[in-house]
Design a protein around this nucleic acid. Structure first.
Length: 231
DNA sequence: CCAGACGTTGTT
DNA sequence: GTCTGG
DNA sequence: CCAGACGTTGTT
DNA sequence: GTCTGG
């Protein structure tokens, strides 16, 4: 799945996803956690792309409160087009989630080891995203998003069995195209084939309150016992 | 008819 | 809002 | 995803 | 163990 990610270089990522240099200034993020605001790119009615902050954890327009967003941080590629919580967004409100890395936790014995996973060289990534606009009491408006997930590719499989959908440049255009046929959209939702790197990182990333460069800091993982048990 | 869910992951 | 289950 | 709470009463 | 919040 995808429960944390990075936007460590928004100054490069946003122009790349927008397709132009007039990107708004956004703070660098090393540990984006659910319920926090993060930058996404949407296509306006005139086709131009724009970047804005939305809350991670999709709150459907029909929800009675925003708490439901905590359970809607990911949408499975296999079912997003038909699930009640996501299908309207899948049909009409798709977005690009700006990122340049995501974290997955590998379960080892009793514990967990976090890994940072990036495109080779830390290139910008666009996760396939869905968004919605919720209207609450007293005129409150909340825009929020979910990240579409798919099966892990060969590299990531060693760590975890799911990962976010990372769109190619052409895939981004299709994903944002309101006219795109459903079959074309579903065809995009596959594990990326781009070269990637996985880096074991400090468990500083575990705490969502830690949003600093040391989340990216590589660590040495003790080799797992290959046979037998320790005692 | 009304009430209640609407999700993913991982673990057993 | 819409669907499922009672 | 992980971290942190998990409760009631009464008083300020 | 399970739920809520970040």
């Amino acid at each position: 799945m995808c429960g944390r990610y990075t936007v460590s270089n928004p100054g490069e990522i946003l122009p790349e996803l927008l397709g132009h240099d007039a990107a708004p200034e956004m703070a660098a993020r090393y540990n984006v956690a659910p319920t926090q605001d993060a930058p996404v790119v949407v296509a306006q009615p005139n086709g131009e792309r724009s970047a804005r902050l939305m809350r991670w954890g999709l709150v459907p327009y029909w929800a009675n409160g925003i708490e439901i967003g905590g359970r809607m941080i990911n949408a499975r590629a296999e079912t997003a087009a038909t699930k009640p919580a996501f299908r309207d967004s899948f049909a009409r409100r798709r977005c690009l989630v700006a990122a340049d890395g995501f974290y997955e936790w590998q379960r080892i014995g009793g514990g967990k080891q976090p890994y940072l996973i990036r495109l080779a060289g830390g290139a910008p990534m666009a996760f396939a995203g869905l968004w919605d606009r919720w209207r609450g009491p007293r005129g409150r408006v909340l825009e929020s998003f979910a990240i579409v997930t798919t099966g892990a590719n060969e590299l990531v499989e060693a760590i975890h069995d799911r990962m976010p959908v990372v769109l190619t440049r052409n895939g981004r255009a299709t994903w944002l195209d309101v006219q795109a046929p459903t079959d074309d959209l579903i065809g995009l939702l596959r594990p990326t084939a781009e070269p990637m790197e996985t880096v074991p990182v400090s468990d500083r990333v575990n705490n969502p309150a830690n949003d600093s460069l040391d989340c990216l800091q590589p660590v040495i993982v003790p080799p797992a016992p290959t046979q037998g048990s320790l005692f």
